[in-house]
Write a protein that binds this DNA or RNA. Sequence first.
DNA 1: GCCGTTTTCGGCCCGACTGTTTTCAGTCG
Length: 599
Amino acid sequence: MLYYYNVRKVITNTELAELLRDIAAAYKIKGEKKNRFRIIAYERAADAVEHLSSEAKDLWDEGKLMDVSGIGPSITAHLDELFKTGKSKHFDEVLKGLPPAMFELMKVPGIGAKTAYKLSKELGIAKAKNALRELKKSLRSGRVARIEGFGEISEQRLEKSIGEVKKGEKRLLLPYATLVADEVMKWLKKLNTGLEVHPLGSLRRKASTVGDVDLAISTKKPVEVLHHFVDYPRKLRKIEEGPSSASIMLPGNVQVDAMVSPPRSYGALLQHFTGSKHHNIALREHALKMGFSLNEKGIKNLKTKKMKNFETEVEFYEALGMEWIPPEIREDTGEIQAALNNKLPDLVDIKDIKGDLQIHSSFDIETSHDLGQNSMDEIAKRADELGYEYIAFTEHNPSQSGHNERSMIELLKRKREAVDKLNYSLVKTMKSLKKIFNSLEIDIMPNGELPVPETGFDYLDFALCSIHSSFRQNKKDMTNRVLNAFKHPKTRIFAHPTTRILNKREGVEFDWGVLFDFFKKSKKIVEINADPIRLDLPDILVREAVKFGVKMSLGTDTHYVTSMGNMVFGVSVARRGWAKKRDIINTYSLEEIEKILIQ
DNA sequence: GCCGTTTTCGGCCCGACTGTTTTCAGTCG
């Protein structure tokens, strides 16, 4: 019997990845040298599972588990048994004799397999339950420091990092990290306006959430620049200041790291610290086949032992025989092969965007959800400033309680008239804005019905539909719920599809194959919601949608005229999902988009 | 244990940091 997962429960990708990582850890403890690559194989399999766009269990159901790169015949056989019977004899065997507590202890930053095993043995902590609390006790009593290989410093370090386990892994939302980085970069440029500075890591790759804010600086005067950096006036404290890097802590526990490089090797530094880790691993494997070794200083020829520097990333990638790869898609999901073959997608760009397809104004149609804070006039003017050709007002549908059919229709009629009026008057005076669509964001009820009377639809150009309740339905019911809602010809856009809230709520589950197939055939649109707390569809599913040929729309879902600029974060998600201009309908001309949306 | 634009066998990314080891192992990104 395995020690931590319940055989009756469907195992999620996160749990499965954890299991595979635990097997790798078990091999580390038990294995001889020859197991080294088997350990890596299990860790890679765990990574692969974590990055899947559908549940591993579903892939297994469809017999497609072996298609996943990193999962081969052996692991497939074990998972086969696991999914069928709820356990794997092989995994049981590997884990046998190891204290379950060690896997719990491994959740502490700085504790890997070896340390966890040693601690649990030496301290006599065997059970997973309360393992962290037991460790804490031993730390306090000074027992840990007396174990061979440990000292007072490791005791203090562990005490500190054990506290970080429970704090949760709240990561910065992309716009906030962007803002922090922009302000620090502005400060850096006060020293020297010509200074070249770039964000690094997940921030440069525009991931939805960011851990630390890392910056790269190209300079010949590293000491002076780093000294200016740690003088940043809004810092809480300086963490460290060395010859090539420095770190400061800002309010809200936001750590900012700066790394400097001489201009001649700046391209290599930028590439190295932009990652992702998986992209770099794959890139180094490719380089090795060419007889090169890569690091943050440049490219080393393994025969001549000579190191070549690169001022720019473009030259760096060129030297490896490929096009420059946009940071957003550096995730080792096929971009290297595409770059080698000159087949990188021409990703959609913020400049291509001609309109915003989800906006909430303050026009009161008595909804039970939030109203927007600004008038239709204010929003239209802002849209014109942004150079948009069209926008859609998508207030929530009138609440069901307190409205009968007639009063709902009356409200929808009034909104139609207000939008018409704007189109006939205000819009005529504008530079770029040509059309305001009259739309509505309609709740999809648990059974897939829509709480708007049939004649109410006549007043709409088109409708967005989205889920705002009953998030816990099972996958099949959820899928049918959406299919049912989109039977109506006026329902065109599926808004914030997974309903996820970053750092707070997981998205709901659908059978995406079925949904995308339906959306493709019926020419309906899936939204990429640009609200930074949602960024939904998530990038991985955007990639799937692109593969299916499903078109997507961008909407800021804004309730404030000041947040209309969030569009740029939606574009980042689209880019991370390999979306090209034609995949996103907001890049279409007014004439084209009318054909798609108005039925 | 996995994988393939030199391979179905023979390889498998790179380096920094940390602590305690007097020469390196473990962890991390």
